[in-house]
Simulated assay, not measured.
Amino acid sequence: MSRNTSIGSYYKYIIEQKPLGYTFNTNPYFKGFEFEKVNLLWWQNYGIENWHLAFYVGAVYILAIFGIQRLMKNRPAFELKYPLFMWNLTIGLLTIIGFIRVLPGFLRVINEQNGLYNSICLRSGLDIPTAYWTVAFTLSKFVELGDTIFIVLRKRPLVFLQWYHHLTALIVTWLTAPLAEPAVRFCAVLNIGVHSLMYPYFALKAIGVKVPTYIANIITTLQLGQMLVGLAVNVTSWYLQYTGYNCPRHPLSIKVFCFVYGSFILMFGKLFYDLVIKSKWKLKDDKRKQS
């Protein structure tokens, strides 16, 4: 963590102008590195003016993955062992760094008096690292589409969950990011945290490292937990808004997130059941038969 105690022009601007409507933490512990000092208003305006970008990219994504899958039907699969390793390792390292940078600010807000309400509903307590990595989190949804390209080039099974969750996460994140809703803290922290485990795991699997099964089960459990917490936060913010509390959420944002998290819970719940619950039952049955 950087601990530069001087208040530069960037911090004066952040504190006085409150970009995105937030008050920013002035504690030196949460000051950003130079690369984290981005123009937040520029990114917000770019997202508003280019709200359709995610739909265009999403359309190209769908055409690309199914087009490549068709082209590869009668062709040998590409191995792509080391490119896939580097891809997952790079994203994994970046998400680890991102998680380390956003977690302190999140814990600070959540541990305040009325911390749960503050973290979901108040535009306060934001710090430079969290602001930067939230922008990076939004942009990462474009990058993560590359996961599916590797799948179709390597002729691995392309399941509905894989491309559906990438596509919907991209569109919903890009459309709602300019709203700068406080509840996004949970979405960003949880997603970056899970990915900081998931992508290093994929990197090791890509080069044939035998990772214990329980690691995959932990990641699957965390993925489902992320969706359950995300839905709970979304419903809580709606309830607080409905009962008269100040909780800035756009009605469309609440509906879209409820749909997306609800569909993710169903699909990741099925994955959890197949990979964790059923596998444990099978293991117990095998042991019983051997005894």
Results as ranks from 00 to 15, higher is better:
204 L>N: 06
22 Y>N: 10
290 Q>L: 12
65 I>N: 09
140 S>T: 03
111 N>R: 09
70 R>Q: 15
187 C>K: 09
38 V>Y: 11
107 L>Q: 07
230 G>S: 06
182 P>G: 06
120 I>V: 06
215 I>Q: 04
186 F>Y: 15
199 Y>P: 08
247 C>G: 05
122 L>G: 10
69 Q>K: 15
265 I>C: 07
215 I>G: 12
211 V>S: 09
180 A>H: 12
192 I>N: 04
105 G>D: 05
231 L>H: 04
176 T>D: 08
278 K>I: 08
159 V>G: 15
225 G>Q: 10
246 N>F: 09
27 N>F: 10
254 I>Q: 10
37 K>R: 15
257 F>A: 13
187 C>R: 07
40 L>H: 11
41 L>H: 13
108 R>S: 14
133 W>H: 04
203 A>W: 07
112 E>M: 05
60 V>L: 13
86 M>T: 08
184 V>Y: 07
280 K>P: 06
110 I>G: 02
69 Q>I: 04
145 L>H: 04
17 Q>L: 12
22 Y>L: 09
28 P>C: 10
19 P>M: 04
251 P>T: 00
202 F>G: 03
78 F>G: 01
218 I>K: 03
61 Y>M: 06
200 P>D: 05
241 Q>H: 11
277 I>Y: 14
18 K>P: 01
16 E>N: 11
199 Y>Q: 01
198 M>H: 05
164 Y>G: 13
196 S>R: 09
259 F>S: 14
203 A>H: 00
38 V>H: 06
45 N>K: 12
213 T>P: 07
44 Q>L: 11
47 G>E: 01
81 K>S: 08
251 P>S: 02
225 G>W: 08
208 G>T: 10
27 N>L: 03
33 F>V: 12
286 D>C: 14
81 K>E: 12
196 S>V: 09
95 T>D: 02
247 C>K: 05
160 F>N: 03
35 F>T: 06
167 L>M: 15
15 I>G: 14
147 D>M: 03
138 T>E: 10
188 A>D: 13
109 V>Y: 02
96 I>E: 05
211 V>Y: 06
177 A>E: 10
85 F>S: 03
274 D>M: 10
115 G>N: 09
164 Y>C: 05
226 Q>A: 06
187 C>N: 11
146 G>R: 03
99 F>A: 11
89 L>R: 02
29 Y>H: 07
53 L>A: 14
64 A>P: 05
22 Y>P: 03
266 L>D: 00
281 W>V: 09
267 M>R: 09
210 K>V: 10
147 D>R: 04
42 W>D: 04
250 H>F: 06
93 L>N: 07
112 E>D: 04
250 H>P: 01
197 L>P: 01
8 G>I: 06
106 F>W: 10
111 N>K: 11
137 F>P: 07
8 G>F: 15
210 K>M: 05
21 G>A: 02
21 G>P: 09
20 L>C: 15
147 D>S: 07
256 V>M: 14
212 P>N: 01
149 I>C: 00
46 Y>R: 13
35 F>L: 11
252 L>M: 14
68 I>D: 00
232 A>P: 04
151 I>Y: 02
145 L>D: 03
91 I>S: 08
164 Y>V: 13
254 I>G: 01
222 L>K: 00
123 R>L: 08
254 I>K: 11
141 K>W: 02
5 T>V: 15
